[in-house]
Each structure stands twice: as structure tokens, then as C-alpha cells.
Design a binder for these strands. Structure first.
Length: 431
DNA sequence: TCTGGGGTCCTAGGACCC
DNA sequence: TCTGGGGTCCTAGGACCC
């Protein structure tokens, strides 16, 4: 048995903790560059704002409907997530943190009434952190996900599901006929693992609801669709195919990519940007104690704009390393090779590939072993200094251009303070 | 004028080998 | 004039997730 604890409208809920005046109003969180909506309050959803909808399409709602849009404040969200996760962990013996706002909890061995217990944990997160959550319980991850969807929808839209399932929905408690009714009331597209494409294909085949999907034969689904969808069907039938993973393995690739605040046309600012992206990716690489065997660099023009399009990428093989200087060198070489003048580049990025453990990666006899050890020390010292004094306190030279100030930096015109992670931003309480 | 970022897994097809 | 069968590995692209 598994629970899924998932925050409601997480980013918006984080903002509301520190600005209660946002409660009851339509609020959205905007992606990097203030490009599109990535979180919506219930009131914003009621206005018809879609996930991922471009800001310029909904901007008029500021005036017309009192919509409030905020730039994504990831340091705040990350910190609030940590706090929420540590309380959620109290629901059961095993926790898998699945994303910034949701975790699966293994419930094997937990005694007593799981529904009551879930309510208690949910109330505690609400009281201690101020973030509203929903809890779904089921025999498999897919069922727990579905239960969570029901819990949150029942709360947001009274009448859509039985009222007593609002906030916490425990499918394990239900007789089969009730379970069927819930699945029948759920669109097939809401099932975890069914996206836009597969959802449409299923509907075309007459599979409209989660119940329809659950009643398909797994082998038929594998033949006609894929093993991936077959697993989903089995999971809906209560057959656990996706196990709980309490200790996630290290990443297989690490990326840092950004859309530019203003288009880039020259090679100098492009080198500057790519150097910075590489430095950031390298920090993540060292955090998981890995080396990269390849680095990919890309740049492209906006796919949404008319005019001449450019899109190129290049993979540079590396002697496995996590040294920022080597990675940046390779990235700069790559981007210089693919750059062509005459285009308004909208985005660039790097990806570290072919990752391996930094302890078991000697591909050749290493005559420079002592030098390599010093390199490791240098990098960990740089990381420690940047950790203490702020990102960029020490950086590679090519990440600071000699030209005009970086106008490729992303726009964040509506950024809220880092209430919980920066001393100067801590709110003051007044009597 | 304006459209995010970071991941995972699966599959088909080509290259290559014996 | 005749031209197999089976396996592995890699890559690009598609689909999904949050």
C-alpha cells in the first residue's frame, strides 16, 4: 500500500504563505523569463488559464480579472519543499521524493486507520508550513496518483466526486463497486502515464474513462500500444509494476539551458552564457560525485518567431572530468564551432552526458594522479566559497564578458523575496 | 513584443560483426 | 549469375512526467 502526498498549486501556495493577501485571488507563477504560467491558484484555473499558457496571451486578465502574476522563485520553492517533505515522511517508514511537491510513502507495516493518519499529517503540513496538500492511497503508484487526483478534485470542485473523499482519498477502503464508480467518473487522460497523444489514441479507440482503460487486456495493450501503457493498465488493476524507490540513483544526464531575456546575435555573449551554464551544470555534477564523459552544447533561434531559423548542437568527447575549467573549455570550443552570425538566438544550453562515478572512471593509466587530486580540492574549495558568498563569487573568466552588460539574462520582473533562504529577505513581524 | 527547464524510458533503424 | 541469418550497440526521436 502506498500514499502520494502532493501539494496543491505548490508554487502559488508558497507565495501565499508570505503574502496572505493573495488568498482567494487568481494568482499564477511564471516560468523563467516570465514566459508562461507554470502554477495556477484555483481561482486562476477557474479563469480558464491553462498550464504552460504564454503570459502574453493572458496578460489582459491583470486588468480585467485582478490576476496576479509572479516570477518563479525557485530558491523559495526549494526550501519550502524540504520543509514539507520532512513532515510528509512521518506518514510511513519509506519515502520517495518524486518531485518538488510530491512524495510517495510506503505504508507497509503502518498500523491503525490510514485515512485518519493521512488527515493528521496533512493538517500538520498545513499548520507548520502553510502548504495545502492532498493525499491519495492505493495499492500501486498509479492508483495512489489517481486517488490523489480524486482527493484534490473533490476538494476543488464539490460534487465532482463524493465529498468525503476531499483532501484524503483512500482507495484501499472501498468496495469494488465504489472503486469502479470513481474510475468511471475519471477521464482517461487523468491517468498517470497517459499524456495528450496516447490519450487521444485511446479515446479514438473508445476508451474514455479510467475504468475503460483498467478493463483492457494487458497483452492487447502491449501489442497495440507499448509495454509502457501495459504497465499502466496492470497498475490500475492493482498489480504493482513500478516500485517505490527510496534512494534514487544518480542522474544520467545533467542539463543547464536557458531562454535569453533578449536575443543574442554575437558570439561573445553566447560564449559568456554557455560558460555560465556549464559552470552551473558542473556544480550539480560534483554534487552527485560524477564525472562527465561528454558535453553537448546547443543554440537555436525561437521556433515561434518567423524569419531565418538556426538550430545546431554538437557533442564534445571529454577525458572524464568534473573540473569546471575543462568543461567550460570544451563547451566554448563547441559553441564557437556551431556559431553562425546573422541569427537572433533565443536559447542555448549545455548537457553533461555519459556520466560515471568519480571514483571508478579512470579510462586510462593516469600519470597525473597527484595533479588530479589537487584539482578535486580546488573545485571543492570553489564550491564551498560560492556556497557561502553566493553563486558566482568565484567563476571562470569566460563567464564574464568584456562587452556590454549581459542583456541575455532572463527576465524576472515580478520576483518575490527569498523569505526563507536569505537573511536580508526574512520578513519582519509587527504587533 | 511576448511561448520554461530538467528529467526518464522505450523503440526503430542503421552500422557493424561473425 | 549467384547474395543468409542472427546478434549487439548506438543514436535519434517520440512520449511521458513535473
Amino acid at each position: 500500500m502506498l500514499a502520494l502526498i502532493d501539494a496543491s498549486n505548490f508554487y502559488v501556495s508558497c507565495e501565499r504563505v508570505f503574502r496572505p493577501s493573495l488568498n482567494g485571488r487568481p494568482v499564477i507563477s511564471l516560468s523563467n523569463n516570465d514566459g508562461c504560467a507554470i502554477a495556477r491558484s484555483n481561482e486562476a484555473k477557474a479563469l480558464g488559464i491553462k498550464m504552460g499558457q504564454p503570459w502574453h496571451e493572458i496578460r489582459h486578465l491583470e486588468q480585467e480579472a485582478g490576476l496576479i502574476a509572479l516570477s518563479a522563485n525557485f530558491p523559495l520553492y526549494g526550501d519550502m519543499s524540504d520543509r514539507m517533505m520532512s513532515i510528509a515522511a512521518g506518514l510511513g517508514p519509506v519515502q520517495e521524493i518524486y518531485s518538488i511537491d510530491e512524495s510517495f510513502i510506503g505504508l507497509d507495516g503502518v498500523r491503525g486507520d490510514l485515512t485518519k493518519r493521512s488527515h493528521a499529517v496533512r493538517d500538520r503540513i498545513n499548520q507548520w508550513i502553510g502548504i495545502p496538500c492532498g493525499v491519495g492511497i492505493g495499492a500501486t503508484k498509479t492508483l495512489a496518483k489517481l486517488a490523489n487526483h480524486i482527493a484534490k478534485t473533490a476538494e476543488r470542485k464539490p460534487g465532482s466526486y463524493p465529498d468525503n473523499l476531499a483532501a484524503v482519498c483512500n482507495l484501499a477502503n472501498l468496495p469494488g463497486s465504489d472503486m469502479d464508480a470513481l474510475l468511471a467518473a475519471t477521464d482517461v487522460g487523468e491517468v498517470w502515464g497517459v499524456g495528450r497523444r496516447i490519450g487521444q489514441q485511446l479515446r479514438d479507440a473508445g476508451v474514455q474513462t479510467a475504468l475503460d482503460l483498467a478493463r483492457l487486456s494487458p497483452s492487447m495493450v502491449r501489442d497495440r500500444w507499448s509495454v509502457v501503457l501495459e504497465r499502466t493498465v496492470r497498475e490500475l488493476q492493482g498489480d504493482a509494476c513500478i516500485c517505490l524507490d527510496a534512494a534514487p540513483s544518480p542522474r544520467k544526464q545533467i542539463a543547464c539551458t536557458r531562454s535569453f531575456g533578449n536575443p543574442v546575435t554575437e558570439v561573445a555573449p553566447l560564449i559568456e552564457a554557455v560558460s555560465e551554464f556549464t559552470s552551473r551544470a558542473a556544480v550539480k555534477l560534483r554534487q552527485q560525485s560524477s564525472f562527465a564523459g561528454q558535453i553537448l552544447v546547443f543554440a537555436h533561434t525561437s521556433p515561434f518567431r518567423p524569419g531565418p531559423h538556426f538550430s545546431k548542437s554538437i557533442v564534445i568527447p571529454l577525458r572524464p572530468t568534473s573540473d569546471t575549467r575543462h568543461l567550460v573549455q570544451a563547451a566554448v570550443r563547441g559553441v564557437t564551432q556551431i556559431y553562425k552570425p546573422g541569427f537572433k538566438l533565443s536559447k542555448a544550453g549545455v548537457m553533461l552526458l555519459d556520466l560515471m562515478s568519480d571514483t571508478a572512471s579512470q579510462g586510462e593509466f593516469d600519470f597525473d594522479a597527484p595533479e588530479a587530486r589537487d584539482r578535486g580540492k580546488l573545485m571543492s574549495t570553489v564550491d564551498a566559497i560560492n556556497d557561502r558568498f553566493g553563486r558566482g563569487a568565484i567563476h571562470v573568466g569566460s563567464a564574464v564578458g568584456t562587452g556590454p552588460p549581459r542583456d541575455w539574462s532572463m527576465r524576472q520582473e515580478r520576483l518575490t523575496p527569498q523569505y526563507t533562504t536569505r537573511f536580508s529577505d526574512i520578513p519582519t513581524a509587527r504587533a
